[in-house]
Amino acid sequence: MIKFEDVTCRFVSGSGIEEASFEVGPGEFVCIIGPTGAGKTTLLRLIYMDIFPEKGKVKVAEFSSVKIKRRRIPYLRRKVGMVFQEFELLEDRSVYENVAIPLHVIGLNIKEIRPRVTNVLEELGISDKSHHLPSELSGGEQQIVSLARAIVKEPIVVLADEPTGNLDPAASLKIIKLLEQINSDGTAVLMATHNYSFVKDRGHRFIEIVEGRVTA
């Protein structure tokens, strides 16, 4: 489903990814671990094609980094859910509106959108906050909303870039458990984290990056 073939992507600063090759299959839960600045975010950005490799090839489902046209990138991103450390929610919209955005983008009508958003919010245990603004929620709740927005479009993979980076231990654990719940429904999860202790005993596959090189 996701395939890196000898991928190199370097930045002027010197950071980036060097000759990375690995595969992630459907329904897998993979933790990308490594210290800050190791290249975890770069790896995720390569998957949702925010950046492109200078060498090698990234394949996500039927999309290939060497063949894809710019106008096709939105269609790739509709198959990929994304969660970020900073939540990336729209502050002037309610929880419901934030979660509904990807469905409007896809072009679903209101009758289809309403039940899907309601179900996801219920599934993630945040339906009572659906009319709240993000600023009225705790960090953990905001990250759950971000997660709801990522999965509402039923992606093939959820990319989580340091999803627990701004959360306390209890909220972090809740987010990891929710990601595992999403994964148990068949959605692949790629989670980048520098906090190995949180994920080490949970039975997931690990990809370790050190100074841009995938070592495991």
Partner: peptide
């Protein structure tokens, strides 16, 4: 610009 960035991340086309 935040709105534009988020819309791009969730798969919105430029036209959208």
């Amino acid at each position: 610009r935040d709105l534009i960035r988020i819309l791009k991340l969730v798969g919105a086309t430029n036209r959208f």
